[in-house]
Computed example of a mutant assay.
Amino acid sequence: MVKKEFPDEEEIVFCTVDKILGTSIFVKLDDYEDKEAVIHISEIAPGRIRNIRDYVVPNKKIACKVLAVDAASGKIDLSLRRVTAKEKKDLFEEHKKEKDSAAVLKIWAEQAQLNFQEITEKILAKFEKLSLFLQDIKEDPEKLKQLSINKKQEEILLQLIKERVKSKKIELKKKISLSSKAENGIVLIKNLLKLTKPAKVTYLSSPFYLLEIEAGDYKEANRLLEEKIKILKENAKQKSVEIEILE
């Protein structure tokens, strides 16, 4: 699988604080080969900031939202204050899951007499994450054939997965407002919401609805959620429906 060289705008990224210079924080993007990115003081927290170190210090792990990416110059601007508590929690859980997955694979490499570095590189060439690999194998063991390993090595990994890998999904939610002044407004809104399948839509109270997406990891869930929101926005106008995306 080809890994992206740069993150997308609006993406939530896992970072390590590198240094603080003046009114800027320089961080390394853990999932993008430690590429450097910058957080301006205005994007650290709401209100006036007297001391940046009250919020971050070198080597601290933080979750940030990507504001802008200039691939030509390599400049990446981030925001710390625009990340919600839910987004931060999900991202940190995802990274813990990745760390735990690496631990499982290290045990497997030792027991199956495999080179840990080589086998993880082979896995990441075909799967986006180690945790997704383990989940996929748990659901469909036949996918192990992609690694060209022997039967005994397959059996060892399947047993470890059975013992140590739990089936867990990441769920993301977004509150939206939908309204229409048309006589058949309710029908128009219902037809619009059909476009979000297989996402779950819950009616809260007029004009509010809750859009829910479930996936194997945070990035995939966020991608699917943004995709459904884009579909709603693109089709709302032609269906005479007013839409507002809320937190």
Rank of each mutant, 00 (worst) to 15 (best):
L67T: 05
Y203H: 04
S177V: 04
S180N: 04
P198W: 13
K239C: 05
F14R: 14
K99E: 14
L78S: 11
F92M: 11
I229Q: 10
Q238L: 06
E10I: 00
I213K: 10
K151I: 11
G47T: 05
R164E: 13
A85T: 05
E94P: 00
E154T: 06
T23Y: 11
L67M: 13
S180D: 02
I245P: 02
V187P: 00
K169D: 04
K233E: 12
K181C: 03
K28N: 11
I52D: 04
D217E: 10
L29E: 09
K129E: 06
T196H: 07
I243H: 08
I149F: 00
K200P: 02
S131C: 09
N51Y: 04
D54M: 06
K173H: 10
A236D: 03
V13W: 10
G22A: 14
S148C: 12
A102G: 15
E142S: 13
F127A: 02
A109V: 10
H95P: 01
K106C: 08
E247A: 15
I44H: 01
Y203N: 05
I229G: 07
Q238D: 13
P58K: 07
P7N: 06
L134W: 05
E94T: 13
I170L: 10
A68R: 15
V56F: 10
H40I: 14
A37P: 14
V201T: 06
E43H: 07
E110N: 14
K89H: 07
I149D: 00
I229D: 00
K200F: 14
V241M: 04
K174H: 04
E121N: 12
A72Q: 12
K89R: 14
V2N: 15
F14W: 08
F133T: 00
I176E: 01
Q153Y: 03
P141F: 00
I186L: 13
S79V: 09
K200E: 06
R82Y: 04
L105E: 03
K129L: 08
E98L: 05
E11D: 13
E94Y: 11
T196S: 06
K162R: 14
A215M: 12
L225S: 02
A37S: 14
E154Y: 00
D217W: 03
K126W: 06
L232M: 06
H95D: 00
A112D: 04
K35P: 05
N191V: 08
L224G: 01
I231W: 11
K86F: 12
K175M: 10
K228L: 09
K122T: 11
I41H: 03
D8H: 09
Y32W: 08
K138F: 03
S131T: 05
E226G: 02
F208T: 00
L195I: 02
E33W: 01
L67R: 02
K200M: 07
T120D: 00
A45R: 01
L158D: 01
Q135L: 09
N235L: 07
T23E: 11
A199I: 04
E154S: 01
E9L: 10
N51L: 06
Y203C: 00
K75D: 07
K168M: 01
